[in-house]
Structures are given as structure tokens and as C-alpha cells.
């Protein structure tokens, strides 16, 4: 019978009977990570945690654009050093990753991304990395070009590229199709409704963008393994016209589906379910801070302990004491709705 030979982790009820919803069974890596492997990272804000833990582990974090020696930690972070494998800031969308890689390969600048504010010059494709801007356009162009070469250099070093998908919503320059990590005018630049447009990338576009990005990475590094994750951090705001909860659900659903599809189609692409750990119903939102958006330190630690725990060659990350799957008065209370799927429970191993 189908289901009868499946492991306990395949059954909701059996997962629920354990303290942590069988968290250690949640992730079986496709490829093993071993000490000394070189890991590159990119993605949304949540991805910064991955870099931090990789740096503290026996893995090596690829960093082709390091901060000056002895720069204080606060300055390092404020100027976008050490957050990822190069100083690209947050890469929220698959389109942004694709564009970054295409620019790196083509050594290409976009005039529409040379932003200004109060006489200072900002890189519209990573405006937060120089919060006070640069002194001239020539200086900005030099910084951007050298940055792109260091992005390319990541693939001379990396064994594994970890990308955390964050958003589907973005802003683009209508004429060129260039996408920005923030709307023009928020940090620098100027919003012009005739030049800039909101874009909410769908399944097909996200899949194509990510596929193209993977192809580009493989051209630079044929043996590269790729690990995808989805950020569990909800949208701060949506320009889609929808309620922010609906917009978040749409965005994360697209990203989760694309990540799953990519991983299913390619033996060298894996998916790690950090999204599920933080957002999953069994954990009842316990890993979110009071604003229901930011992930708690304990939540990050649970994610990382699950990840490192799945790679026995690496030293484990301690799992903090965690709230269990939410208990109810009667866990077997019948669902009031008719649900054929519930019948599958009967096939679970005893």
C-alpha cells in the first residue's frame, strides 16, 4: 500500500507526537558539506545569518571583497562588508541575482543605476553599501566595476553557492528593464513614474531568472553546487495593491515553489527548508519577534542547528530550548470538515 512503508516524518500526526515535530528529519542534504569547503552566499536579509554561521564553522566563507583589516565591526556591517561573499548588499529577487551575474560576466554598468542625492553619488543596485555616497560619478563607476569583477571572482573559489530568495516584488527602469533592490528615491535617486515601474515577478519569470542565473554560475564554475533557501521574513510593505499578508503569501509561495522545482530538476541544486522551520504551523510563530516579522535569535539558531546537524562531518550548532509543536486539548479531535486526506493517517506505521 502506498504510505505504509513511509517513515514517521511523512505523517503529520507522528511528527506532532514528538517535541520538535521531527525537526531532525526535515532536511536530508543532496550533497555533503565537509570541513574546508568554500561557501558563497547571497540573498535577502535573512541570508546574512547563513554567512555568519558559515564563518563561525569549519566551512570557509568566500569573501572576495573583504573589509580593511581592523575596521570596527559596526563599520564593517554598515558599509556592507562581510555580509555576503561580495559587497552586493541584499539580493532580494531572482531577477536581481540574474542581473548581477549578467553584469559581472559582461562587465556592464547601467547609467540608470548611477543615482545622486545632495551632490553625492550612489550605486542604485546596492545603495545601502555606501550610506553616505561617493564623491563623483567616476568614483562610483570605478567602485561598481571593481565590485563586479569581485562578484565574478566568487566563482573561482566557491564550491557551493547559497542563495536565499526573499521577494518577488521589485522596481524596474522601464526602458532598460534594470531592477533595483529598493525603489528609486528611498535611499537615493529620484522616483519618476514615467521611468520606473513596479514589478511583481510570477512563477514563470522567477523560474526563468533563477535558471538563467544558475546557467551563468555553471559557466563560470562548472562543478558548482547550489543550495536554495527562502527567507521566512514577511514583506515589510507591498506595492501590489493587495493586503500585505496576501502579498507575502503570494511572494513566498512563488519563491518556495520555484526553489522546490529547481531542486527537483537538478541533482546539484538542493533546497534547505529554513522557511518551513520559521513559518511552519507546528512552531506557531514562536520564532518571530513581537513585530511578527523579524526572526528571533533562537529561531535562527534552530534553523542553523538543523542545517549543520544534517551534515555529520561538520561540528553541530547547539539547538536552543524550543517551544514544541503547539499542544491542544485533544490532539486527535476530529476535524469538523470532511477531509479525505485525513484518512491517510490510518496508514501510518504504528
Amino acid at each position: 500500500m502506498p504510505y505504509s512503508d513511509l517513515p514517521p516524518s511523512a505523517f503529520w500526526k507522528l511528527c506532532r507526537q514528538t517535541d520538535d515535530f521531527r525537526l531532525s528529519d526535515l532536511y536530508q542534504p543532496k550533497f555533503a558539506l565537509t570541513p574546508g569547503m568554500r561557501i558563497a552566499t547571497a540573498g535577502s536579509c535573512f541570508a546574512q545569518n547563513i554567512g555568519r554561521y558559515v564563518r563561525a564553522s569549519e566551512l570557509e566563507l568566500v569573501d572576495t571583497e573583504p573589509a580593511p583589516a581592523r575596521m570596527p565591526a559596526e563599520t564593517v556591517q554598515r558599509f556592507g562588508y562581510g555580509l555576503f561573499s561580495a559587497r552586493y548588499g541584499n539580493v532580494y529577487t531572482a531577477r536581481q541575482l540574474r542581473q548581477l551575474l549578467e553584469d559581472a560576466v559582461a562587465d556592464r554598468l547601467h547609467d540608470c543605476a548611477l543615482w545622486q542625492r545632495d551632490g553625492r553619488f550612489y550605486d542604485g543596485l546596492r545603495p545601502n553599501t555606501e550610506p553616505e555616497g561617493l564623491g563623483s560619478e567616476a568614483e562610483l563607476r570605478a567602485h561598481r566595476r571593481d565590485h563586479l569583477r569581485r562578484v565574478r571572482a566568487i566563482f573561482d573559489e566557491a564550491d557551493v553557492f547559497v542563495f536565499t530568495l526573499g521577494l518577488t516584488e521589485t522596481w524596474q527602469d522601464i526602458k532598460t528593464g534594470v531592477v533595483f533592490p529598493t525603489a528609486p528615491g528611498v535611499i537615493a535617486g529620484a522616483f519618476d513614474s514615467a521611468r520606473h515601474a513596479f514589478l511583481n515577478l510570477g512563477m514563470a519569470e522567477t523560474f526563468e531568472d533563477l535558471s538563467t542565473a544558475v546557467t551563468l554560475m555553471r559557466e563560470l564554475s562548472p562543478g558548482l553546487k547550489i543550495l536554495l533557501t527562502v527567507s521566512p521574513v514577511p514583506l515589510t510593505a507591498t506595492a501590489s495593491g493587495a493586503h500585505v499578508l496576501s502579498a507575502t503569501t503570494y511572494s513566498k509561495s512563488v519563491l518556495r515553489a520555484v526553489a522546490g522545482e529547481m531542486a527537483a530538476l537538478d541533482d546539484d541544486i538542493d533546497y534547505f527548508p529554513s522557511y518551513e522551520i520559521i513559518t511552519g504551523a507546528p512552531y506557531a510563530g514562536a520564532f518571530y519577534q513581537d513585530n511578527l516579522r523579524n526572526v528571533t535569535t533562537a529561531g535562527v539558531q534552530v534553523v542553523m542547528s538543523t542545517f549543520f546537524g544534517a551534515h555529520p562531518a561538520l561540528a553541530p550548532v547547539e539547538r536552543p530550548a524550543m517551544a514544541t509543536a503547539r499542544g491542544g486539548a485533544d490532539p486527535d479531535e476530529a476535524d469538523a470538515l470532511i477531509c479525505e486526506e485525513a484518512m491517510l493517517e490510518a496508514l501510518a506505521p504504528k
Binding site: P68, M71, T75
Partner: peptide, 10 residues
């Protein structure tokens, strides 16, 4: 390259 603001901030 490091920007002058980054150097000053450091």
C-alpha cells in the same frame, strides 16, 4: 577601493 566615508567611519 574604500570610500572616504567608510574610511572616516572606520
Amino acid at each position: 577601493l574604500i570610500s572616504e566615508p567608510a574610511y572616516l567611519a572606520a
